[in-house]
Simulated scan of single mutants.
Amino acid sequence: MTTVIPLDTRRPVTEAAQGRVGVLLVNLGTPDTADAQGVRVYLREFLSDPRVIENQGLLWQVILNGVVLRIRPARKAKDYLKIWNTEQNESPLKTITRAQSDKLAASIADYKHVVVDWGMRYGNPSIKSRLEALMAQGCERILVMPMYPQYSAATSATVVDKVATALKDMRAQPTMRFTPPYYDEPSYIDALAISIEKHLATLSDKPDTIIASFHGMPQSYIAKGDPYQAQCVATVEALRKRMGLDEKGLMLTFQSRFGYQEWLQPYTDKTVERLAKEGVKRIAVVTPGFSADCIETLEEIVQENAEIFHKAGGEAFSAVPCLNDSDEGMDMIRQIVLRELQGWV
C-alpha cells in the first residue's frame, strides 16, 4: 500500500540538494567577423539547417555552394559593416544578448544558486559550449529560453534540436526545460506598448500609421502546420487592443524574404512603398518578432526600408528599437524566467 504524503508536510528541497540551476538565453546568431569569410561561415551553418531550408537535396546544395555562398557573403558583409559594433568588434545582436544575460543575472541575484548565460543557435558562443560551461559550474538543471516571442520550427524548434544534439554526447546530462513562446504574454504586450509610446514621445510629429514588421517565412511552411503566422497575428491583435488602435493604426507585415517561393504577406518593403505612393507622409515601424536589434532591424528596416519610403514620396520614417535590454524588456524576461523556474528555485 502506498502512503500519500500531503504536500504541506513534505520537506522542502534545499539548494544544496538541488545543485545549481542554469538559465541559458539563446538568440539566432551572427558572424564572428564582418567580412566575406565570416559571413560565409555563418551562412553555411544557417542555410544548412533543414529547419530553415527544409529541402536540403542536391538542387539546394548546388544553389547553396555554387551561388549563395559565392555571391551573398560579400554583399551581406557590407550590410554588417554598416551596423557593426566596432568598439567590441562584434555585431549588435551579440552585444545586446550579452547585456540581457548580465542584467537578468543581476535582477535575480537573490537566487544564489542560479547561473545565467547566453549563446547563439548559429555561430558563437555555441549552445554546446554554454551548456558545458553551465554544467562545469555545477548546474544540474538548465532552463533554455529561445529569444523568439513567436514559435516557429525554423527558430524555437531548432534551438531544441541543437540542445538535443549537444546532450547526445553527454553521459551525465542535466535536466532540461524550455520556456514557451511568449507572443501573447501580458508582460510582453505591455513592454511593446511602453516601448512604442516612449519612442513616439520623442518624435516631433505623430506617425500616420505604425507598421509591425515580423520576419517572414515561406507560405508552404505555414501550410504544413507551423503556428508562426497565427502567433504573429495574435501579438498584433493584443497590441492593438492594448494601445487602442485599429488595423489602419497598426498594420501587420512580413520582411526578409529570400528566394523565389511565395512568402507570408503583406511584404514590409512593398507596404512601405505603397503607403508613400498613396500619400502617407509619416510612418513608424516596430519589429515585435525580434528580441534584440540585429541586421534585420538596424540595416533592413532602419536603412533599406527608410530609403524605399523616402524614394516613394514619404517624408518621415521612424523605427522603434527592439526591447533589447530596456527596463520593460528585462522585466518581461525576468517574469518569464522566474515563472518557468518554479519548483527549481
Rank of each mutant, 00 (worst) to 15 (best):
A16Y: 11
L93D: 00
S48L: 01
Y221P: 10
E90C: 14
G244D: 01
A223W: 09
G29R: 06
V13R: 08
A16S: 11
P146I: 01
I71A: 03
Q56N: 06
R40E: 04
G123E: 01
Q231F: 02
D190F: 15
E237F: 09
Q100H: 04
D331L: 14
D110I: 00
I189E: 04
D331S: 13
A284M: 14
D35M: 06
A157W: 00
H199F: 15
I308T: 12
T14P: 06
L59I: 07
D331Y: 15
K241V: 10
R240V: 06
V280T: 12
K248W: 02
C139Y: 13
P207L: 14
D102N: 10
P12E: 01
T86E: 15
T268C: 09
T158M: 06
W118R: 13
D169V: 13
T253A: 06
V39R: 03
A234G: 06
Q173M: 15
Q231A: 02
K241M: 11
H113S: 08
Q229Y: 11
A238N: 13
S204M: 14
E300Q: 11
K78D: 00
V286H: 05
N124H: 15
L203D: 05
I5N: 14
A34I: 09
S326Q: 04
R20I: 10
G216I: 03
R334V: 05
P146M: 02
T287M: 10
F46G: 04
K76P: 07
Y111R: 13
S48F: 07
D327P: 04
T235G: 14
V23H: 04
N85T: 08
Y260K: 15
G244C: 01
G289F: 05
T86A: 14
P266Q: 06
M330W: 08
T253K: 04
P207C: 10
A136F: 06
K103Q: 08
P174H: 12
S91E: 11
